[in-house]
Amino acid sequence: MRIFTLYLTSIICGFCMMALEILGGRLLQPVFGSSIDVWAAIISVFILSLSIGYVLGGRIADRSRSNMPLAWMILIAGAFYCMMCWYGLRFSNSLGEQIQTARWGVLLGALVLFLPPSLLLGSVSPMLVKLVFTNAAHVGRTTGTLYAIGSLGNVLGILVTDYLLLEHFELTTNLLAMGAILGALGLFHLFTRIEASIVAPAEPLVAAT
């Protein structure tokens, strides 16, 4: 059950993260167009935030023994998704003409809009690694499976958003729905404590001898 919950968390976070990458185009296109610059900006910001998220998530995971930090990361990411319905397009539109027409303008827009939520979702992976870890002999297998499932979520997030969600629902409906799902997932973790199986050594072992 515990492992199933963690895998499900991984797949949902992966889905929502890449879905935002596709939906993100819609937040920028009305102002910045849809040239290759726009996609370069979006992709680079998401990969950047993954990179920062991994470092951050890894450090937090080492200090924690449960899924509480994980719960907060997912919950706040969900809040960003919801709030983006309000500030997303308004923000793109409010950038001055100078920024809107500059080549780096879209990079700035993508940074402000997508860095916070995708950074939070990026930090989820290392925290999940800590939680799924049960046995040092199987560390490769468990983390490998976890990454595979997270990436599967990524793939689904891209394809389902492109082929289905964009055509049938409005941008804000999609964002709000994903925000609600992430919020619910965050709350679930907040109310269901999952302990990590490895506990950090309290003191360096050398001191004991």
Binding site: L75, W86, A180
Partner: peptide, 14 residues
């Protein structure tokens, strides 16, 4: 936080 974000997103959506 979750409820407030949902409320803001829903009522103020653009």
């Amino acid at each position: 936080i979750v409820l407030a974000a949902l409320l803001v997103g829903f009522t103020k959506r653009d």
